[in-house]
Simulated assay, not measured.
Amino acid sequence: MTPYSTTTTPARFLLLGDSHAGPIGRAAKAAGIPFQGGPIGAGREFNAEFFDVREGDVVFRKAAADGHYRGFLAELGAAGLGDAGVPLVCTFGFSAHFLATTENWRIYRVRGGGFAPGFLTSGLFDAIVRATVRDALAFYGHARALGLRVLAVMPPQRVPGLSDPAVFGAAQESVRGALAELGVEIVDLRPRVTDEQGRQRPEFCENDDTIHGNLAFGRLILAELLARGL
């Protein structure tokens, strides 16, 4: 997704994220809701070692990501993240399908292929997930320390074949809990978009795709953001 221009209308929020931010941006653009931002990279790039702190700002280590980000700030008339002047909507750290890659959890399985009772709700599991997304959490924490209102959007409930559904669900809960501790608002549409098994309903899934939500999903997220005053 390319950066969006808000022309002369003040932006309501800054959107930063991976590809899961795409439907949000498309929904806002279609509805004429002014904002700045969009996806600046792939989900796996925003878990660890992806940014450096600068006074009142951040610098993304990948030049392409930082270039998009600087463009968004310029459109907002901001020198840095702390000067954005609008809430931050973000999807970093919620690439749960990546966290749930089945092979990564093989060493924690017991005989028979499952996990020991209570493992997915244990302190060990939570610590592993938090360590995996440590710099995503640090990014949110830095944004909060700069005084920004921050809203994190939970991912579509879609589990591709290489990921473990149980780990997917547990991992996103660990990320959610860590963000709540930082004072980040969580946008969670699961009760509205999932079936009896907790999976994303087809009408909210991108066609010919195993991971992403579609424009209808983005519209629900946008409606929730607007309902929260953005």
Score class of each variant (00 low, 15 high):
4 Y>C: 03
4 Y>K: 14
4 Y>H: 11
5 S>N: 15
8 T>V: 14
11 A>D: 10
11 A>H: 05
13 F>L: 03
13 F>R: 01
14 L>D: 00
15 L>D: 11
20 H>R: 14
20 H>P: 03
24 I>H: 13
25 G>E: 09
30 A>S: 01
30 A>C: 02
31 A>E: 15
32 G>K: 13
34 P>K: 13
37 G>L: 08
39 P>T: 04
44 R>G: 06
45 E>F: 01
46 F>T: 01
48 A>W: 11
49 E>L: 04
49 E>H: 12
50 F>S: 14
52 D>T: 15
52 D>C: 10
53 V>Q: 10
56 G>T: 10
58 V>K: 00
60 F>G: 12
61 R>N: 10
61 R>I: 12
61 R>F: 02
64 A>W: 05
66 D>A: 09
66 D>L: 07
67 G>C: 05
69 Y>L: 06
69 Y>M: 09
70 R>V: 03
70 R>D: 07
70 R>H: 04
70 R>W: 04
72 F>T: 04
77 G>S: 12
79 A>R: 15
80 G>A: 11
80 G>F: 06
83 D>L: 06
85 G>N: 09
85 G>Q: 06
86 V>F: 00
86 V>M: 00
87 P>K: 00
90 C>K: 08
93 G>H: 12
93 G>S: 12
93 G>Q: 11
96 A>F: 04
97 H>G: 05
97 H>M: 03
98 F>T: 01
101 T>S: 02
105 W>I: 04
106 R>L: 08
106 R>Q: 13
108 Y>A: 13
109 R>F: 06
116 A>N: 07
116 A>I: 06
118 G>M: 07
118 G>S: 12
121 T>H: 11
122 S>I: 07
125 F>D: 08
125 F>M: 13
129 V>H: 04
130 R>V: 01
132 T>S: 05
135 D>P: 07
136 A>R: 07
138 A>L: 05
139 F>D: 00
143 A>L: 08
147 G>R: 10
148 L>A: 12
148 L>G: 14
150 V>I: 02
151 L>K: 06
153 V>M: 11
156 P>C: 11
156 P>D: 10
157 Q>K: 14
161 G>Y: 06
163 S>E: 01
167 V>I: 15
168 F>Y: 15
169 G>R: 15
169 G>F: 07
171 A>P: 12
171 A>S: 15
172 Q>T: 09
172 Q>C: 07
173 E>D: 11
173 E>S: 11
181 E>L: 12
181 E>G: 10
183 G>M: 02
184 V>H: 06
185 E>M: 00
191 P>E: 10
191 P>F: 11
193 V>G: 01
194 T>Y: 04
195 D>C: 02
196 E>I: 05
196 E>H: 02
196 E>R: 12
197 Q>V: 01
197 Q>H: 08
197 Q>A: 13
200 Q>V: 08
205 C>A: 14
210 T>K: 07
210 T>G: 07
210 T>N: 13
211 I>G: 01
214 N>A: 04
216 A>G: 05
217 F>K: 04
219 R>H: 03
223 A>M: 02
224 E>Y: 00
230 L>G: 10
